[in-house]
Nucleic acid binder design. Structure first.
Lengths: 160, 160
DNA sequence: GTTCTTGCAAAGGCTTTGCAGTTCT
DNA sequence: AGAACTGCAAAGCCTTTGCAAGAAC
């Protein structure tokens, strides 16, 4: 199986005036602590997508002692601010990526092997526009996801 | 937020020779017990999508005493056989629908209110074909998912 | 009789939350 | 100082699994 996710548009503003509650710790105070910055930096430097666990390990090297909960809270805060995006594939753990680093792109994920690939396709934009007009949806922070079977995994069970 | 999911193609065969292991209970024996039938029937009769919990309650009325675990196992089995489909939206519980009852369609889901809508769009097929050719993916059981903000939750354009 | 299916309860994985101490403006 | 942020551990949610009993072929 494959999931194709197409980032259609950038999210919110980049200023930390997101609406996330006090839990995520960036609602009113809008502070940007070292850990939070480290989390964002980790995402920005990453080539692909990272799970919270991976971010946790990476940040742990820069700022020893950083807790997993903090990473989760930071990720949530960053996503709320539009500085990061969260992607979920089926029952796999969520993966994150920094927003704005690259242009909107699609994601290809094979549920069998879990690999994620990116791509861009103008058809996605047209589709988005049509749907937006037809259903009144505003997929501003949206993406497009398709599941199927990737080439490699399809080749494996080709004998069927 | 919205997720637009487009069913691109029907899944596997409808015969119960799926590859799911002994856990789901339909690998080699291919039995179709009353509970399993009840689960499938519930999905078929449902207008929209149902969560495992909803299926559980529904089946519980037809066949009192049916356990939640059985429902989950049945759903997994049915999905493996291609008789049902599982849809996951972000961190919400998975929802299910019977396959083959209706023609392939897309799904619109608002993450804010959780509502799911369906639609069809030829652009989805074209997109699928192009991606299949370009990346060698076979989104046979796939769908297309877009996230954004739905009309009602956006509190703006009212137009169905 | 053998193999598959169930119920119940317990476990599991990922993520969130409570709380008290720490850090930042 | 006062509000945010953090770590740790515990809790939560949805889903899966272990096991013995029951049902199907």
């Amino acid at each position: 199986m494959i999931i194709i996710i197409i980032m259609l548009k950038a999210e919110k503003n980049t200023n930390c005036d997101c609406g996330c509650g006090p839990t995520c710790g960036c609602a009113s105070g809008k502070r940007c602590s070292r850990r939070r910055k480290a989390v964002l930096q980790t995402l920005s430097e990453a080539k692909g997508h990272l799970t919270a666990e991976q971010v946790y390990r990476s940040v742990g090297q820069k700022l020893p002692g950083t807790g997993l909960a903090t990473v989760y809270r930071s990720l949530k805060c960053l996503c709320g601010c539009g500085k990061a995006r969260e992607l979920k594939y089926g029952d796999r753990p969520a993966v994150y990526e920094a927003a704005g680093v690259r242009s909107p792109h699609g994601h290809l994920l094979c549920l069998a092997c879990g690999a994620v690939r990116e791509f861009s396709d103008p058809a996605a934009d047209r589709l988005r526009e049509r749907l937006a007009a037809e259903y009144g949806f505003a997929p501003q922070a949206g993406w497009l996801e398709i599941r199927g079977t990737c080439a490699r995994c399809a080749g494996v069970k080709e004998r069927k």
